[in-house]
């Protein structure tokens, strides 16, 4: 279990507990957090689960694999060095405190 903070593009914060083994996209959908869509439900084929990871957390996450980096190309909002696909960030206990920012658009 990890507490994850989702910050909306308007700056609203929601902190929710997300079970280990699920991913950051699941955490958003299961807690009714808007702005993360997840059309392919983790199939890594839609890029509608784009998030910006808080700077200080970037290095603490497992780095993206090739498919994630490639699929980020299709994200609707501008890419930043902190861009990730939320469905590819698997939740572990040591991600407790993770902060992700939701872009203003996904489609």
């Amino acid at each position: 279990m990890a507490k994850i903070t989702y910050v909306s593009s308007a700056g609203c914060e929601r902190i929710v507990e997300v079970p280990t083994g699920t991913n950051v996209m699941d955490g958003a959908l299961r807690n009714d957090i808007e702005g993360i869509i997840g059309d392919c439900a983790g199939g890594c084929t839609c890029s509608t689960c784009h998030v910006y990871v808080e700077e200080s957390w970037v290095a603490r996450l497992a780095p993206p694999i090739d498919i994630e980096t490639s699929m980020l190309e299709l994200a609707a909002a501008p890419l930043r060095p902190t861009s990730r696909l939320a469905c590819q960030i698997v939740v572990r206990d040591d991600l407790d405190g993770l902060v992700v920012h939701i872009p203003s658009t996904q489609r």
């Binding site: 890594c44 890029s47 090739d66 498919i67 490639s70 699929m71 190309e73 299709l74």
Partner: peptide, 10 residues
């Protein structure tokens, strides 16, 4: 080959 898919889709 996800990059081919991503660019190809566009």
């Amino acid at each position: 080959a996800p990059l081919d898919f991503a660019i190809g889709k566009q």
